[in-house]
Nucleic acid binder design. Structure first.
Lengths: 155, 155
DNA sequence: TTAAATGCAAATTATTTGCTCTTCA
DNA sequence: TGAAGAGCAAATAATTTGCATTTAA
């Protein structure tokens, strides 16, 4: 149900290989940024969170560099952006088709893989002369942590 | 396929009635904000866009007042928030179940109503001990306008 | 050796907050 | 007459941009 998570070193290699295959340069800074991102894997970190983690490990990497690198990785099709209703952009290192559980209270996002959700019928021909390239289902609600807090606050 | 759109006056009455029924005060400013929102209906305006439209019609309404009023209307369950990947929050005057076409190029959002999308199966029991309250399908791609521009720029 | 990436600081954009003043039950 | 809303300005948060410098094919 949750996607598999290979070891960090293997994951880094995979990302670097895919970036280079697409002609995206992977400089030292960018490798460090990827390591920061991988360390936060599964948390859908914001660009600022990736920056903080990267600096913690390799001081001196600039915030703008992180923002630019992440965008460039998204353009290369190696990361995706995930977010909702105005929270900061969150980066997702999963490109394969998947869907999201979104917590309406804490803004947390959890990836889920579910064949039945993949099978959502795309209206065809798409309405409004829209050319649909991706389908994503958002299941919104409350995560366990937030639900527990709710009970404590109003018992 | 697209949701029906009643006349503005009727729509205003409906919103005001529902707000009052839920104990949300509808002051003069708030009525003007609702009118601005209705004038932009179907465009999923940002709070700033609603503010600009409201001021155009009734100068003097403050930006913070618009932000606060819109949030209060959402809390009352009369509006919903729509957005994606980091663009500003957009307000949607449709509360009924519906889905979104999202243009990856211009950030535009179009409401769609589709029974087959409503029927998306919610994994049960929901994974990760998540309590799901809403399901929304996003169909992402390019709207007609942006697709046309693509062709002009790279023929 | 040249185009692209970086780092830093300043600028922008979106949104929130503090505070005083007004309003309206 | 007291809680809630309104308006304005300042504060934050998230992101982007300008520019001089460094780096890598």
């Amino acid at each position: 149900m949750a996607p598999p998570t290979p070891p960090d070193a293997e994951r880094l290699d995979s990302l670097v290989r895919r970036l280079e295959a697409r002609g995206v340069p992977v400089t030292d800074s960018r490798r460090q940024i990827l390591q920061g991102l991988i360390a936060l894997r599964g948390r859908h970190p914001t660009a600022d969170e990736v920056h903080a983690e990267t600096v913690r490990r390799h001081p001196g990497v600039g915030r703008a560099t992180v923002y630019r690198a992440l965008e460039s990785f998204v353009r290369a099709g190696v990361l995706t952006k995930a977010s909702h209703t105005g929270s900061a952009v969150r980066y997702d290192d999963t490109v394969a088709r998947h869907h999201h559980l979104v917590c309406l209270r804490c803004d947390g996002i959890i990836d889920i893989v579910d064949e039945r959700l993949d099978a959502v019928p795309v209206p065809d021909p798409a309405p409004h002369d829209f050319e649909v390239s991706e389908v994503q289902v958002q299941l919104r609600g409350l995560c366990r942590t937030c639900r527990t807090q709710d009970k404590e606050e109003s018992p």
